[in-house]
Design a protein around this nucleic acid. Sequence first.
DNA 1: ATATCACTTGAGAATGATTCTCATGAGCAG
DNA 2: CTGCTCATGAGAATCATTCTCAAGTGATAT
Lengths: 131, 131
Amino acid sequence: MQRMTRQRAAVVEVLADSEEFRTAQQLHEMVREQGHSVGLATVYRTMQAMVAAGEVDVLRTAEGEAMYRRCAATEHHHHLLCRECGRTEEIDAALVEQWAESVGRAHRFSNIEHTAELFGTCADCAADEDV
Amino acid sequence: MQRMTRQRAAVVEVLADSEEFRTAQQLHEMVREQGHSVGLATVYRTMQAMVAAGEVDVLRTAEGEAMYRRCAATEHHHHLLCRECGRTEEIDAALVEQWAESVGRAHRFSNIEHTAELFGTCADCAADEDV
DNA sequence: ATATCACTTGAGAATGATTCTCATGAGCAG
DNA sequence: CTGCTCATGAGAATCATTCTCAAGTGATAT
């Protein structure tokens, strides 16, 4: 049902060019820097649709802000995010899945979901701070 | 430096009587149901202070809303939260700590922090649904 | 008990992210 | 090309949270 519009294309393109997680606001600004004119509401709508379609990852900062990133892997996974530069590593976490399952079972909870994100300072940024 | 005021006492009491995680808004309402009059801003301020002091746990719902709960354990830990009734299990997650550390090291990230919460349906609520 | 004073409070304004409204615009099937 | 329907955008609306600042009140010394 999704129509391909100029706006949607612009948002998708910016997202595709970006390695890291971005807030909707950042995406909006990036799109206009590219010369396109797209409403903020449209950025939000596009992100919602893509999240629903499993085409992007979402995560929440400690402040509760949503961040989006294109997502190649369709399987469930987690992230390690540099809090300085936003660089993101996609990490495999079979361990966490197992942990979640077993803890859930131990407490007799069903239908377990979980969130898990790591934040840190990447090697490059840590080096910069020594200056 | 924390003064004990009527308002702060009321908030602390409501929190103490509550087993589960509550939003600031819920706490505010509960306090007034108890007959006390406390401003919403004060609830937020009190929660901020208690979080800083490590006396309460915070977590974010998928929608980015903050929820608070009194916290006996002073050590770092995680939660398993029933999405139906809000019931909370405090879980030990030495495994997750180790995982976070080792993943961080593997990617040469320093100063690792992490979030991890589990959501599910507890046995009681699962039983109710069969009706 | 009293005065003192810095820390608290509360009502409402301010902020910031996100969602909604609705009139207008534009894909796309026929 | 036409028409129908969904998409868009500007701004209003919503929601959680924080800020502002005048007025209130613990804690402490007197």
